Amino acid sequence: TLIVWILGGFGTWLIGNIGARPGVESVHIGASGLIFGWLTFLIVFGFFTRRAWQIAVGVVVLFVYGGVLWGALPGTFGVSWQGHLCGGIAGVIAAYLLSSPEREARQRRKGSTLPSIPA
């Protein structure tokens, strides 16, 4: 949550009003960036960890709530698609960062199965 909150908020701050009509301000309020971050986290975390049950959870989440991801694209003026997009990107980054112990353990296991080369 902290990763999505900080990175998503920072990204929204960086690109805040891009794509808005002149004189129209986007509204960046609410927890939608956080929701998009959680959604993308659940969808991709299993792919980073390569665990079947986590991938299954991600696929279920994608089918149930995946249509919401269209909100990360410009559409309705005045709605913060920027917050949605940055929250989603932050969710992917959070999944990558939080899966690193499992990815490193997989690399160690993979490396230990290789025969050692005599010097």
Rank of each mutant, 00 (worst) to 15 (best):
T1I: 08
V4Q: 06
V4R: 01
V4M: 10
W5I: 13
W5P: 07
W5E: 09
W5N: 03
W5M: 09
I6K: 13
I6W: 06
L7D: 06
G8M: 06
G9S: 10
F10P: 01
T12W: 01
T12H: 09
I15K: 04
I15Y: 01
I15H: 05
G16Q: 12
G16C: 11
G16R: 06
G16K: 08
I18C: 04
G19V: 12
A20I: 10
R21Y: 14
P22D: 15
V24H: 04
E25Y: 15
S26W: 12
V27H: 08
V27W: 11
H28Q: 03
I29H: 08
G30D: 02
A31Y: 10
A31G: 15
G33Y: 00
G33V: 00
L34S: 00
I35R: 04
G37F: 03
W38H: 13
F41P: 03
L42W: 03
L42G: 07
I43Y: 02
I43P: 08
V44L: 14
F45D: 03
F45K: 02
F47N: 15
F47Q: 11
F47E: 04
F47W: 08
F48Y: 04
F48L: 02
F48T: 00
F48K: 02
R51I: 12
A52Y: 12
W53P: 08
I55K: 08
A56V: 11
G58M: 01
V59W: 11
V61L: 06
V61P: 01
V61R: 02
L62R: 09
L62G: 07
F63N: 04
F63Q: 07
F63G: 02
F63Y: 03
V64F: 06
Y65E: 15
Y65K: 10
Y65F: 07
Y65C: 02
G66Q: 07
G66Y: 14
G66A: 15
G67Q: 01
W70A: 08
W70H: 11
W70E: 08
G71M: 11
A72Q: 01
A72G: 05
L73A: 04
L73M: 08
G75T: 02
G75R: 03
F77W: 05
F77N: 02
F77I: 10
G78F: 05
G78C: 07
G78T: 14
V79D: 07
Q82N: 01
G83C: 04
G83H: 00
H84K: 04
L85R: 00
L85M: 09
C86R: 05
G87H: 04
G87V: 08
G88W: 06
G88T: 01
G88I: 05
I89S: 15
G91D: 11
V92D: 05
V92H: 12
I93T: 15
A94E: 05
A95F: 15
A95L: 14
A95Q: 09
A95I: 06
Y96R: 14
L97E: 06
L98N: 09
L98E: 09
S100I: 11
S100N: 03
P101W: 06
P101Q: 07
R103N: 06
R103G: 03
E104S: 13
A105C: 13
A105M: 12
Q107H: 14
R108K: 10
R108H: 09
R109G: 01
K110F: 10
G111V: 13
T113W: 14
L114C: 07
P115V: 11
P115T: 10
S116R: 12
I117Q: 13
P118E: 04
A119W: 04
A119H: 02
